[in-house]
Simulated scan of single mutants.
Amino acid sequence: MEYMERTYRKLHRQQDLVHFQAVVKETDLDVAVLRTRFNDHLVKWVENLVMEYRCPLEQYIQRHPEFAKTLKPLSPLDGAPAMAVEMAEAAKLAGTGPMAAVAGAFAQYVGKRLLGRSREVIIENGGDIYMRCTKKRKIGIFAGQSPFSNKIALEIPPEQSPLGICTSSGTVGHALSFGTADAVVVLSPSAILADAVATASANMVKDVEDLQKAVDFATSIKGITGALAIKDDKMAVKGQVRIAPL
């Protein structure tokens, strides 16, 4: 599969880390590790990791097709792989279908394994991030045509990581959204939960008056530490969110 550059990825690139792409079917990861921990074999190792998690999930979906189709919470069948179980649990809390958490799930599962090889890790998967840092990091926010887009960043201190930072939008990208938010960003130690909650929160935003409702909903869920919602030139923020110029 030929890799196509995703320009928003420049917003989380770190100069002191090595970034590389790992692409397996629809899973397209941007991976960052310490320069001293990168080697030519790491890309293939990460791709094999993705396959290790994709294959059981694909086989499970063949057995339980509704898991991939429903937009509502769904209990997993007996014998479901661990990733599917975690996705279903997050979806239940958020009120979404399990696949609303799939990008965050792959970012987190691969990221946790990579921590055994690098003490600094950033995994980005379709705008959803799992990271661990040992120094303060800035993660830029892309919010479509909003004037905030590419102008502000989340400032992440090391004590806040490992951390999931997941984004949903009704105006950017191909992911299904029933709202019109330019960006809803949700923070949680679980990227799986953050992904599902970002989807649910973004679905709530039909107009600028809904921004506060979206962040209130997100932060009401146990395990969510912060949320930010943007539409046009308005923004709502709640919880452990530090904003800095990009």
Score class of each variant (00 low, 15 high):
8 Y>H: 14
10 K>W: 08
15 Q>Y: 05
25 K>Y: 10
26 E>N: 12
30 D>E: 14
31 V>G: 06
38 F>W: 14
40 D>I: 10
41 H>S: 14
42 L>D: 11
42 L>Y: 08
43 V>H: 09
44 K>N: 14
47 E>F: 02
48 N>M: 11
50 V>C: 06
54 R>Y: 11
58 E>T: 13
60 Y>C: 06
74 L>I: 12
77 L>G: 06
87 M>I: 08
88 A>T: 03
94 A>F: 02
95 G>F: 02
96 T>H: 05
97 G>N: 04
109 Y>Q: 07
109 Y>C: 05
110 V>T: 00
115 L>M: 14
117 R>L: 15
120 E>A: 02
122 I>P: 02
123 I>P: 00
125 N>Q: 10
125 N>R: 05
126 G>W: 00
127 G>K: 02
128 D>N: 13
130 Y>V: 06
134 T>P: 00
139 I>T: 07
144 G>N: 10
150 N>W: 10
155 E>N: 07
157 P>V: 09
157 P>R: 09
165 I>V: 15
169 S>V: 10
171 T>I: 03
172 V>M: 00
173 G>H: 05
175 A>T: 13
176 L>P: 06
184 V>C: 12
184 V>G: 06
184 V>S: 08
188 S>P: 12
190 S>N: 12
200 A>R: 03
203 N>T: 10
203 N>P: 11
205 V>W: 02
213 K>E: 15
214 A>R: 04
217 F>T: 03
218 A>P: 11
219 T>S: 10
226 G>S: 13
226 G>N: 13
226 G>T: 13
233 D>F: 00
233 D>L: 07
238 K>V: 08
244 A>I: 11
246 L>I: 09
